[in-house]
Amino acid sequence: MALTALDRRLLGWSAAFVISQANIIRLLGPVAPRLAEIQTARSARDYTAILDGMTDSDTARYRSHYYPDFVHPLIYAVALRTGARRLAELTPLSPRTRRVLAAVPVISAAGDYAENVVGLYLLSHREHITDATVRATTAVSVTKWVLALGALGYLSQGFVRVWAGKLFSR
């Protein structure tokens, strides 16, 4: 089976996603688990305790991940949208499913950008860490993850069905 232009774009954006994600993990290093803790903090006290538990070196590592993370949402949004377009070429998708698969990555990426702006700001302005800010940011973070992973899950199962169908129809 020959690769189409859309297949090549999907492979390129997927590779860019993997490289971007690996770079962010590399930058975070041993601080990576703190990211999940911060993104799911339930109160200002919890959020502040996580930041206070970091050394200056840890904080520098944590801060450094934000800059490539301002490009990362664009990469995963384009990869997911490209995947949705390719899946729609391979299997029938309802107009509603197409619209959802087009919108969800954009909404997720927008949430990621909002989360990054707030997180970077709070890192330097801890006096603005409040329960309301933390809860709102956590809600955005969790929603972002649910949307992105939900889209990825939908696309993955769709591609597996297409590939399995081709494999077993021979």
Rank of each mutant, 00 (worst) to 15 (best):
D7E: 11
D46W: 06
V18G: 06
L101D: 04
N23Y: 14
H128D: 14
L35P: 00
D7W: 11
P30C: 00
L28R: 07
H128L: 09
R81T: 10
L155K: 11
Y66H: 14
L74K: 06
G158M: 09
D7C: 03
V140C: 03
D7M: 06
T55F: 01
G12S: 13
A103S: 12
E127P: 03
Y113D: 02
R34N: 10
A32D: 13
Q21C: 06
I107K: 02
P33I: 13
V142S: 01
Q157W: 11
T4K: 03
Q39N: 09
V18Q: 00
V31K: 02
I75D: 06
S43C: 08
L51W: 13
V104L: 14
I107V: 15
R81W: 10
T4E: 05
T40S: 13
V160I: 15
V104Q: 09
L51Q: 07
V118C: 02
I107H: 03
M54H: 12
T82V: 13
R45I: 06
R63Q: 14
W145H: 01
V100N: 07
D58S: 08
S108P: 04
V100E: 10
P68S: 13
I75P: 09
G53F: 10
G83H: 07
E89S: 06
R96N: 00
V117Y: 09
L28H: 12
V78H: 10
T91Q: 10
R99L: 14
V117I: 15
A32P: 00
R42P: 00
P92W: 12
T55I: 02
L149T: 11
I19G: 11
V18M: 09
R135Y: 05
A16D: 05
L155I: 08
T48C: 01
R61A: 15
A139G: 15
L101S: 07
T97Q: 09
L51E: 07
A132R: 14
V71M: 11
L155G: 08
I75Y: 09
R170G: 13
F17C: 12
T59N: 01
D112C: 00
I107T: 11
L101M: 12
V18F: 08
H65Q: 12
L3P: 00
L123D: 06
I38L: 15
S64W: 01
V78Q: 08
E89H: 04
G83Q: 04
G150W: 02
H65C: 04
D69A: 13
R45V: 15
T97M: 15
Y76Q: 03
T4N: 06
G165E: 09
S108L: 05
D7L: 06
V18H: 00
A41E: 04
V78F: 07
A44P: 07
S108W: 03
V71C: 04
V31T: 15
L80N: 00
E115A: 13
R61E: 05
T4L: 07
A60H: 01
R85Y: 01
A60W: 03
S14P: 00
V71P: 00
R126C: 08
R63L: 13
